[in-house]
Simulated assay, not measured.
Amino acid sequence: MPLYIRDSSVDDLAEQVRIQLGARTKTDAVRAALQHELQRAKSDTPMRERLAAVRRRAREELGPPVPDVDIKKIMDDIWEEGE
């Protein structure tokens, strides 16, 4: 979906960012600025919340943890160190 900038001050900012970054186009400058802002916003999220989101996604994709599984024993068996 295209993004149209109708505000001349925003267009001027995009041009300034393009020049500062040495970007070829305003689109490249806006992409870089948005990626940077998204990264900054994510880093402002407390680690506890980020980890909770990762756990939530893992449970959605992988399902709940399997009870009574000894991961250490499994890993030792795989590496043939369980004896």
Rank of each mutant, 00 (worst) to 15 (best):
1 M>G: 10
1 M>I: 03
2 P>D: 12
2 P>S: 11
3 L>I: 14
5 I>L: 15
5 I>P: 07
6 R>C: 02
7 D>E: 15
7 D>I: 15
8 S>M: 15
8 S>L: 15
8 S>E: 15
9 S>M: 15
10 V>D: 12
11 D>Y: 15
11 D>H: 14
12 D>N: 14
14 A>Q: 10
14 A>F: 14
15 E>W: 05
15 E>I: 11
16 Q>Y: 13
17 V>F: 03
18 R>A: 09
19 I>C: 00
19 I>E: 12
20 Q>V: 04
21 L>Y: 04
21 L>D: 01
22 G>F: 06
22 G>M: 06
22 G>N: 07
22 G>E: 06
23 A>L: 08
23 A>T: 02
24 R>C: 00
25 T>F: 14
25 T>A: 12
26 K>W: 02
27 T>C: 03
27 T>M: 10
27 T>R: 13
28 D>R: 09
29 A>L: 10
30 V>P: 08
30 V>E: 03
30 V>R: 08
30 V>H: 09
32 A>R: 12
32 A>H: 04
33 A>V: 07
35 Q>D: 09
38 L>R: 13
38 L>H: 06
39 Q>M: 05
39 Q>L: 07
40 R>V: 10
40 R>M: 05
41 A>Q: 13
42 K>D: 13
43 S>Q: 11
43 S>H: 12
43 S>Y: 03
44 D>I: 01
44 D>H: 04
44 D>Q: 07
44 D>Y: 02
45 T>Q: 08
46 P>M: 00
47 M>A: 04
48 R>V: 07
48 R>W: 00
48 R>C: 01
49 E>W: 06
49 E>G: 00
50 R>H: 03
51 L>I: 04
52 A>M: 07
53 A>M: 12
54 V>Q: 07
55 R>P: 01
55 R>T: 02
56 R>C: 04
57 R>F: 01
57 R>H: 07
57 R>V: 07
58 A>D: 02
59 R>D: 03
59 R>K: 11
59 R>A: 04
60 E>A: 12
60 E>I: 09
60 E>H: 11
61 E>T: 05
61 E>D: 07
62 L>V: 05
63 G>Q: 11
64 P>Q: 12
65 P>N: 04
65 P>F: 06
65 P>R: 07
66 V>W: 05
66 V>M: 10
68 D>C: 01
68 D>N: 10
68 D>G: 04
68 D>I: 02
69 V>E: 06
69 V>F: 10
70 D>R: 06
71 I>R: 03
72 K>D: 15
72 K>L: 14
73 K>M: 08
73 K>R: 13
74 I>Q: 05
74 I>V: 15
74 I>A: 08
74 I>M: 11
75 M>K: 08
75 M>C: 07
76 D>T: 03
76 D>F: 07
76 D>S: 05
78 I>Y: 09
78 I>N: 01
78 I>W: 03
79 W>T: 15
81 E>D: 10
81 E>T: 14
83 E>R: 15
